[in-house]
Simulated scan of single mutants.
Amino acid sequence: MFGARRTRTLLGPADPARRMPPEPPRLSAAELIAWAEATAEPNTPRRGVRRDARLPRRMVLATGAVTLAAGAVAVIGASGVLVDVERGPADPPGTAAGRVLVPVAYQPGTDEAAGPRLRALADGLVDAAYESSAGRYTYHRKQVWGDPVMTSPDGRFSVAFSQETKVWWTPGEPGRQTTVMGVPEYPDQASRDHWASRQPVSATASADAIPLPPFEPAALPSTRRELARMLKTELGAAAVGKETSKIFGRYAVPRAIRAEVLRVLADVPGFRWRGEVTDRAGRAGLAVTFDDREHGQQHLLIFHPRTGELLASELLTLGPVRMNAYELILETGRTDRLG
């Protein structure tokens, strides 16, 4: 059975993803099986319970089995209408293992079209810290949660482990990636109670380091039209939010291009200005959101208030609100040192 690295090596120039930095590695089969065995419960779904087909990448736990489903959760209230709910504070740094995640809080009344604010931010940007550094390798350190997710057989209760990844890459040369498994985190208190009432979910802290094969990344566009194409503006705000996260998570984006990214976002209908917020790493930022009513989701982007760097992104399900996924971009830099 071929692994991703061997497959990409065999494909060589024919690999359609050769210009893109590799995604973080998935959990091993042994880890998935261990989780399933540790949290197994009888596979007896209640009558009348239907599992939504559009779940994120999930491990649906039944006795001795792990299955995956792709897509996105869409949870609508009984009335079929999405309603606003009061939000809690962001998770402070150092919160104990097994925490229940709450959405990043933003100030009441900060609900206006984001365009003018994003353009003003773009006009006043200063250099990011990495723009005064030099080196062969682009470096990112990120923390992610929400892929994959362990889910109970009825689809109601979930848990996932945070992961910290570090990636070093340079065009046309081998790179390096390390991944450290973090603590279990839950989208709601009911999920935490569910797993605790059976067998507490735990994992031994582990680190994994892998070499990355050489690849030729696509150059960042320098014009707004080209950036709009890369950000997939024709697909709407949800796609633009996702592609914005990819750009800032892969490149050390120069100030001029950061400004153009913000101006592209300003022209996309649907983004709302949410003002000053504090992200999960305790950093001050400026937030915008997009409510995807069709799929019952909200997309959140948090930018540095002076440099315009993307600090964090989140995906929530609405009605009721609960965490779906988050990503923190903790460091971006350039270095001559691999690892």
Rank of each mutant, 00 (worst) to 15 (best):
H140E: 04
R141C: 04
R141N: 02
Q143D: 12
V144Y: 03
V144T: 11
W145S: 13
P148I: 06
V149Y: 00
T151D: 01
S152D: 10
S152C: 10
P153Q: 01
P153E: 02
R156V: 13
F157G: 09
S158A: 15
S158G: 10
V159I: 12
A160G: 08
A160R: 07
A160W: 04
F161M: 03
S162Q: 01
S162L: 05
Q163I: 11
K166E: 09
T170W: 07
T170C: 11
T170H: 10
T170N: 12
P171A: 15
G172R: 12
E173I: 06
R176C: 14
T178I: 03
T178A: 12
T178M: 03
V180P: 00
V180Q: 03
M181Y: 13
M181E: 07
G182L: 08
G182C: 13
G182I: 08
Y186K: 06
P187T: 03
P187L: 10
Q189P: 14
A190E: 02
S191P: 00
S191Y: 02
S191C: 07
R192H: 13
D193K: 12
H194A: 12
S197R: 04
R198K: 10
R198C: 06
R198L: 14
Q199F: 08
P200C: 14
A203L: 11
A203H: 11
S206E: 14
D208G: 04
A209Q: 15
A209P: 05
P211D: 15
P211G: 14
F215N: 01
F215T: 00
F215H: 05
E216M: 13
P217H: 01
L220H: 14
P221V: 12
S222A: 14
S222W: 03
T223Q: 14
T223N: 10
R225W: 04
L227K: 00
A228G: 13
R229M: 07
R229S: 12
M230V: 15
M230K: 13
M230L: 15
L231N: 02
L231D: 05
K232E: 15
K232M: 11
T233K: 05
E234L: 11
L235H: 11
L235V: 06
G236D: 08
G236A: 03
A239I: 11
V240E: 00
V240C: 07
V240G: 08
G241E: 04
K242R: 15
S245Q: 12
K246V: 05
I247Y: 00
F248I: 06
G249D: 01
G249R: 04
G249A: 14
G249V: 14
Y251N: 06
A252H: 05
V253Y: 00
P254C: 12
P254M: 11
R255N: 03
A256N: 07
A256S: 14
A256R: 09
I257M: 00
R258N: 06
E260A: 03
E260G: 03
V261K: 11
V261R: 15
V261N: 09
L262R: 02
L262V: 07
L262C: 02
V264D: 00
A266I: 15
A266G: 03
D267F: 10
D267V: 08
D267C: 05
P269K: 02
G270L: 08
G270F: 13
F271K: 07
F271T: 06
